[in-house]
Amino acid sequence: MKFTEEHEWLRVEDDLVVVGITEHASTQLGDVVFVELPEPGGEVAKDDEVVVIESVKAASDILAPVDGEIVEINETLTDNPALINEDPLGEAWVFKMKLADMSVLDGLMDEAAYKDFIGA
């Protein structure tokens, strides 16, 4: 699993990259009450705001971690946003991307580096 400074995790699954938010991010957000997902099929650039997560406290964006195409979204989150708090690393994956160049993942943090980054 790879991690970004925006507290996203990326996991390679066949030829796709699954993206979600980290446990640390979900704790910091607090109880999630609303998730706004993008339409699948769109090309996105790194740092585009692609998802809005609203917690009891505030709205936050999930940024596209890398360039690519969003091919699938987790529609379960629309009806059950609290899943982000319950299982952020598993059931609450947010979207899947197709990347032109998988090697960009090499530039991201591994788990040890991310733990270091959040001071865990």
Binding site: G30, D31, V33, V56, K57, A82
Partner: peptide, 10 residues
């Protein structure tokens, strides 16, 4: 305190 361990919703 904005919240405790249980969180705002609970």
């Amino acid at each position: 305190p904005v919240q405790y361990a249980a969180g705002v919703m609970k």
